[in-house]
Simulated assay, not measured.
Amino acid sequence: MTSRAERRYRVVTAFQRRVGNPLLRRMPFQTLLETTGRVSGLPRTTPVGGRRVGDTFWLVSEFGGRSQYVRNIAADPRVRVRIRGRWHTGTARPLPGDDPVARLRTLPRFNSAAVRALGAELLTVRVDLDG
């Protein structure tokens, strides 16, 4: 990762960790992804932008494999996703072969624009929802 991308990663993740995510988690209809912490074993909840298509939820991680929730998914793919205030269980998997820029065109515009502008290592994540 270039020094500019590294700097962007540090600034964006610090802001998300301290300001953005705590505020967004409190919003009742914000989409949330809950993973299991790979070290602690505790639930970790992250606000995400994405879209449900049938029994699949799609999202794009702005920092790919460096994102904590992607690292948690690698350790334990069982997740929960809160969509429109309702929790769904599922199995998540990163899709490095998918075109994340093309995928962002199918997802909500505001979040997609932010991910494209701030992200450095985009990675598509697919969540297959249970029933």
Rank of each mutant, 00 (worst) to 15 (best):
E34T: 13
F110T: 14
T124K: 02
F29A: 11
S112H: 05
L118V: 03
E62S: 15
M27G: 02
N72R: 01
M1N: 04
R71A: 15
G85C: 07
S112L: 02
M1G: 13
F15E: 06
G54Y: 12
R51C: 08
A5S: 13
R52S: 08
Q16N: 11
S40Q: 12
V53K: 11
R66F: 06
F15A: 11
R17C: 05
P77A: 08
G54W: 11
P43M: 05
P22V: 02
P77Y: 02
D76Y: 01
P22S: 02
A120S: 14
R18E: 09
L42I: 02
G119P: 11
P77Q: 03
T46S: 11
G90Y: 03
T56L: 13
V48E: 04
Q30E: 13
V48I: 15
V60T: 07
R105Y: 01
T91W: 01
R105H: 13
P77N: 09
F29N: 11
A120Y: 01
T45C: 08
V70F: 09
A75V: 00
G65A: 04
E121C: 04
N111W: 12
G20D: 08
T2P: 14
W58S: 03
R17V: 00
L42A: 11
Y9K: 13
L24P: 06
A14N: 05
R8G: 01
L129H: 05
T36G: 06
P22K: 05
V19W: 10
